[in-house]
């Protein structure tokens, strides 16, 4: 199966690979996996005054999974949480030209975004008590 140029570009030069401090109250961590292929993806956001100021990811999986999460972190930076929540896997599919068999990689990235946001909100709620 041939990867699109954009997938290869992100795979060879992934953006924002790394880790944020998961114990920081301003950091939300999303950890998701695809049982069918054994992929695992961690996506983290750092939020200040309702805006995502930083995003990092680490993905062990195929080129499409890496490209999907790399693209997601690029899109997340500078967005408000509300804007970030509207990111859909179909936009990732379109941007990266993912073939049907790789759509689940973009679903994984969308899940990772949602679960990072949910983790951040849960932390904030816990802080308020």
């Amino acid at each position: 199966m041939a990867y699109s140029d954009k997938v290869i570009e992100h795979y060879e030069n992934p953006r924002n690979v790394g880790t944020l401090d998961k114990n920081d109250d301003n950091v939300g961590t999303g950890l998701v996996g695809a049982p069918a292929c054994g992929d695992v993806m961690r996506l983290q956001i750092k939020v200040e005054a309702g805006k995502i100021v930083d995003a990092k990811f680490k993905t062990f999986g195929c080129g499409s999974a890496i490209a999907s999460s790399s693209l997601a972190t690029e899109w997340l930076k500078g967005k408000s949480l509300e804007e970030a929540e509207t990111i859909q896997n179909t936009a990732i599919v379109e941007e990266l030209n993912l073939p049907p068999v790789k759509i689940h990689c973009s679903v994984l990235a969308e899940d990772a975004i949602k679960s990072a946001i949910a983790d951040f909100r849960a932390k904030q709620a816990a802080k308020k008590g």
Partner: peptide, 13 residues
């Protein structure tokens, strides 16, 4: 298939 449990994913990571 159902999503893997978070604790399990943590182990995998």
């Amino acid at each position: 298939e159902p999503k893997p449990a978070p604790a399990f994913l943590m182990e995998v990571m």
